[in-house]
């Protein structure tokens, strides 16, 4: 598909999507099967097929709206769209790219604040310990979002059932994991 891109002359965000994910937005013929099967479609500002259409236009204003959309963050990467797409378009892969780009360009939708905060807390947790530390994750997430009261009842219940570790599981080669993060993050900012 990469040889296609040489001749296709797709510019703009659609071209970037092609370059990074091999997804060619022109393959979409707007049947809507992705949106019909998407479990989060009704919570999105633009359902997946509409995102595809916006990218097809090559209109910079619409491309900007895609990066600022809530859709890309409520997408769960459940892969239903890809699995049923008659054109085998890997929308989840494209969504991953759009999210990363939206973050890098600081365009993420404020309404996605909690979702992003959760991802960040999650990654921070493993960055320092190598494994997920669930209590740490919750505390960090609450600090980021100020959603102090949410799920407050959950923790004691989990604790009672032995589902929460008080002390994080620390791996030995924490510097190795930290180095993976460093390298990946450096690459990202370039």
């Amino acid at each position: 598909m990469s040889s296609d891109s040489h001749h296709s002359g797709i510019s703009g965000l659609g071209g970037e999507v092609l370059g990074h994910t091999d997804v060619k937005v022109s393959h979409c013929y707007q049947c809507g099967k992705c949106s019909a099967g998407c479990p989060l479609s009704e919570e999105m500002d633009y359902p997946p097929s509409v995102i595809m259409r916006m990218l097809q236009t090559g209109n910079p204003d619409l491309e900007d709206k895609v990066l600022r959309s809530l859709s890309i963050w409520v997408c769960l990467t459940c892969e239903m769209c890809f699995s049923r797409c008659p054109m085998s378009i890997d929308i989840p892969k494209m969504m991953d790219f759009l999210r990363e780009k939206s973050l890098n360009e600081k365009k993420s939708d404020p309404k996605a604040k909690e979702i992003i905060a959760f991802h960040k807390s999650f990654l921070d947790s493993i960055k320092y310990t190598g494994r997920l530390y669930e209590i740490g994750l919750f505390v960090d997430y609450k600090a980021r979002t100020l959603k102090i009261l949410d799920d407050l009842a959950l923790a004691p219940k989990m604790m009672k059932r032995g589902k929460l570790n008080i002390i994080p599981e620390l791996i030995k080669d924490r510097s190795g994991v930290a180095s993976i993060f460093r390298k990946a993050n450096k690459k990202n900012k370039n």
């Binding site: 769960l76 990467t77 991953d96 790219f97 999210r99 990363e100 973050l103 959760f118 991802h119 960040k120 999650f122 990654l123 493993i126 190598g130 494994r131 997920l132 791996i171 030995k172 080669d173 994991v177 993976i180 993060f181 390298k183 990946a184 993050n185 690459k187 990202n188």
Partner: peptide, 19 residues
């Protein structure tokens, strides 16, 4: 021995290389 987290949804949502 000494396994780490796979990065789960958070990693591939935020950073492909990390994921």
């Amino acid at each position: 021995k000494d396994w780490n987290c796979c990065g789960a949804t958070a990693a591939h949502n935020m950073n492909k290389e990390l994921s």
